[in-house]
């Protein structure tokens, strides 16, 4: 009975730990640099977090099931290249095209994982190679800067509504859709069930394979959307545009408190995690940490967060 109470208390604490960390970080950075708490700086922080959050949201669905997607950065880069190349010809259709391509890539990863029974980290690592190769070939290994006429199509990403950047609004829409998917649909329930215990979910008649494939489709589609938003913000597409975003995205999910063993997690936690990553990044920039060296911190944070959130009872043999 006592141990049960302890677990409960531990879980209760763990659940609020990320949010407490975020608030503490904001106060810390704010104390050192009062300009940080300015409305404009905070809005800038929100728009900088948007891409990271969209990527992390997609991968949250996969991690909830106990899998992983290592191809999101390649997908986002490919999507940026596709948009940059086709914007002049298709206009707004280019965005739809890139998004559909993302869904297709996710479908293929999902099928490779589920039907061929390849572990998700290796299937998506391989798929990432295929996608980044596609991006390199179609872009002829160059970054593509958009012309003046093409930039006209980017208004929905670069503009503002009542002073709030559209990027933030796009991220909020993703948040709402993802939250509804996760908490109000059978897919969300089944994901949590599969993550918590796949054999039990299977035995209760959940169509495990279909849910998994759908999660990969969502992950790659979110990555494609992130690529589209990146094109809007940078007015260019490149085959390596998002390659630095894999680690922060996965770190955001895990730091938020979603367990990589699956079953435990939510989009809200990912939002908190993405904000933590952004604030840490800004804090390090204020402290003068070399931008290249920041990956060291994210790597350490990732491993530390996994160590705290992982459910060891679920993996008798850690490989």
């Amino acid at each position: 009975m006592n141990t049960l109470l302890d677990t409960f208390r531990n879980d209760g604490m763990r659940q609020w730990l990320p949010l407490a960390t975020l608030i503490l970080l904001v106060i810390l950075v704010g104390a050192f640099q009062p300009a940080f708490l300015d409305v404009n700086t905070l809005l800038q922080l929100a728009s900088d977090t948007a891409v990271l959050f969209i990527l992390a949201t997609g991968v949250t669905f996969v991690i909830m099931l106990g899998g992983i997607d290592l191809s999101i950065q390649s997908m986002a880069s490919l999507s940026s290249v596709v948009v940059a190349l086709t914007l002049a010809r298709f206009g707004y259709g280019a965005f739809v095209f890139a998004f559909a391509l993302g869904a297709l890539a996710g479908l293929l990863s999902g099928i490779a994982h589920v039907r061929l029974r390849i572990p998700s980290f290796i299937a998506t690592l391989a798929m990432g190679g295929v996608l980044s190769s596609a991006a390199l070939v179609t872009s002829r290994e160059r970054s593509i800067t958009l012309g003046e006429s093409e930039r006209a199509y980017l208004g929905w990403i670069t503009g503002t509504v009542f002073g709030i950047p559209n990027v933030v609004i796009i991220a909020l829409i993703v948040l709402v859709v993802a939250h509804i998917l996760q908490s109000r649909t059978p897919f969300g329930r089944y994901s949590a069930a599969i993550g918590a215990g796949e054999p039990a979910a299977y035995a209760s008649g959940v169509k495990v394979d279909r849910q998994k494939i759908f999660a990969f489709v969502l992950s790659a589609s979110c990555a494609a959307l992130a690529g589209i938003v990146l094109v809007g913000r940078l007015a260019s597409g490149s085959p390596t545009l998002a390659s630095e975003l894999l680690l922060p995205s996965i770190a955001a999910v895990v730091v938020g408190g979603t367990s990589i063993t699956g079953g435990v997690g939510s989009i809200w936690r990912t939002l908190v995690g993405a904000l933590i990553i952004s604030v840490v990044r800004i804090g390090m920039t204020f402290l003068g940490v070399n931008i290249f060296a920041q990956n060291i911190v994210f790597g350490v944070v990732l491993v530390a967060a996994v160590a705290i959130t992982i459910d060891r009872s679920k993996i008798p043999i850690v490989k």
Partner: peptide, 23 residues
């Protein structure tokens, strides 16, 4: 010792290594 799956530890170490080299 921390019982973390190897792909997660080494994913972190990948970026720590490249980050350290960059620094």
């Amino acid at each position: 010792r921390l019982k973390i799956p190897s792909f997660m530890v080494t994913l972190g170490m990948w970026f720590v290594g490249v980050g350290a080299a960059n620094a």
